[in-house]
Nucleic acid binder design. Sequence first.
DNA 1: AAGCCGATCAACCGCGATTTG
DNA 2: ACAAATCGCGGTTGATCGGCT
Length: 320
Amino acid sequence: MGRRPCCSKEGLNRGAWSVVEDQILMDYIKLHGEGNWRSLPQKAGLNRCGKSSRLRWLNYLRPDIKRGNISHDEEELILRLHKLLGNRWSLITGRLPGRTDNEIKNYWNTKLGKRKRDHPSSSSAPNSKHSKQSENEKNEPIDELSAGQPKITTLVRTKASRCTKIFIVPTQPRDHHQVEEIDDANAAVIPPPNPMVDSLVTQKAVESEPCSNGLSSLTTPVEDNSLDFIMNLNVGDLCLSELLGSEFSQLWNPHDDHEMIEESKINGDNDNWLCPSLDQSIIYTDVMPEDWTRINYVETRDDTVLHLGSLASFLDSGDD
DNA sequence: AAGCCGATCAACCGCGATTTG
DNA sequence: ACAAATCGCGGTTGATCGGCT
């Protein structure tokens, strides 16, 4: 694929931006909007390459950028999201309105990463030029999602995939170890794109490595307790990212099962239901809304299993 | 005062992904 | 279907600053 270097032109300004350059760029974008970065500098009368202009705008000049120190809450969130997502700065930034990925990345590398180094008992490895990560550590978030949960021996990945099945636990005890297959026709999903989280974390399926909570394969019922069972729900093209873009703490709250599920039967002309906690994703299934709160595992298309309960408690807790 | 060093952060670079023609 | 153009991301660099000797 042919690809010209961005700044092949000789004589372009480089390095720090001057006040005048900033003003020119801001004025131009105010008038013409963002985009067309390659041609923007020429049209705006800037002696910069498009890439540099874009970066300057996104990381510094954008009006919605939040200035000032990272708050304690933001820091906590960064720590938790980094555990979850690894060095997916753009995703992490998506949860921190007004912050830029560059800012969060720098903050991590200089403050949080250093702190982690100083306290090696903590989970995430730093990623700094002063202390390079090993290949194994690099970009690989640490699996602490199951902290406080039944232990699952898993590898956490930040790889996009789509979920194909959801395992849920019913409110009322039903036939023990019952497995239901939902008709594909009732399993279409039309989720809107979620700009906040477009990727996800999956946990490697544990087919050959039974974990303590009893999940040993995708077809073997979970045995959290004697009343639990797995409903094998085919949700078609449900993108797992939509699930992950939702509030798991709300999705998974065993003490407050029905809170998030409102009267949301769609149109009243079919048996499909909207799960409001899934970031307005519309999920058409035969499953009654109350069952959504007990989603326990999501199996993805690449045979990985996401343990939603672990994620929920992880996102819910402020602990390390 | 001068030099060194570490911390910080804006900016650059390379590359994969996506869009466009 | 393909190539080119563009975008966006994550890793890295380098200028600057402040503290220390």
